[in-house]
Amino acid sequence: MRLVFVHGWALGPECWDLVSPLLKSFPQARVDLGYFGAPRLPDPHPGDILIGHSAGFLWGLRQRADWAGMVAINSFSRFCLDAQGRGCVKPAALRAMQAQLARDAEECVRNFRASIGAPAAPELVEAAPLAEGLELLRSFDVLPHLGEKPLLVLATKDDALAPAREAENLAQGLGASLFFSEKGGHGLPWAAPEFCAGKIEKFLQAQ
């Protein structure tokens, strides 16, 4: 069993620096989607567990269907609202992000990271993979890709980007375990690492 950590949009693998040491008894790998330099994509292993933050969970589901288990942190069934009301933001809001990214990638990333309480971004910003990440958020629907694998959903009640109802939509797709932290915003991996690691460890032991 190996834990494969995937960071969210406009973030990097360092967002797991506080969670990863708390799960050191498990083999681990971190994906780097290349938003601030060269990407790093670990080769798949049998028994891998996807641990995805926000859009990182969507990316992991798009990459492969044979995860042994999955953990979604601050994630959602959809990002853009659909006709049934599933999603986090109106499509126009995402189009505005895409326009800002095309106009000034550094400012777009800086503003987004500040809005979720993430540390300042590195100076080097790679616009092309960031644009690909926004396109994934525009179109990807998680529910058809969940399969029958064990799923743990971790969320916060004060997440201004991914509302609680979206965590519920995601968990209901598989009848998954869902746990809320009272606080942490959209940054559970760095705002509440003990909460994340404790729930993940119990989930893994149960599987």
Rank of each mutant, 00 (worst) to 15 (best):
G52D: 09
H53D: 07
S54H: 10
A55D: 10
F57R: 04
L61I: 01
L61D: 04
Q63S: 15
Q63Y: 11
R64D: 09
R64A: 10
A65H: 02
A65D: 14
G69P: 05
G69N: 06
M70R: 12
V71A: 14
V71L: 15
I73A: 15
S75E: 11
F76G: 03
R78H: 08
F79W: 14
D82H: 02
A83D: 03
A83Y: 01
Q84I: 00
R86P: 00
R86W: 02
C88F: 01
P91G: 08
A93W: 01
A93E: 06
L94E: 11
R95C: 12
R95H: 10
A99G: 13
A99N: 12
A102G: 08
R103G: 10
D104N: 14
D104C: 09
D104W: 04
A105Y: 04
E106R: 15
C108K: 04
R110H: 14
R113H: 12
A114K: 14
S115D: 11
G117F: 11
P119G: 11
A120Y: 05
A121S: 15
A121R: 15
L124F: 02
L124C: 09
L124E: 11
E126D: 10
E126K: 15
A128M: 05
A128H: 06
P129F: 10
E132T: 03
G133C: 13
L136A: 07
R138E: 14
S139K: 05
S139W: 00
D141F: 07
D141G: 10
V142F: 07
V142W: 12
P144T: 03
H145G: 02
H145P: 01
H145S: 10
L146R: 01
L152Q: 03
V153L: 14
V153N: 09
L154D: 07
A155D: 10
A155R: 04
K157D: 05
K157H: 07
D158S: 09
D158N: 14
L161H: 12
A162C: 15
E166Y: 02
E166T: 01
E166Q: 05
A167F: 03
E168A: 11
N169D: 12
L170R: 04
G173Q: 06
G173C: 06
G173Y: 02
L174S: 14
G175P: 03
G175H: 04
A176W: 04
S181W: 07
E182L: 15
H186D: 13
H186Y: 09
L188W: 09
P189I: 08
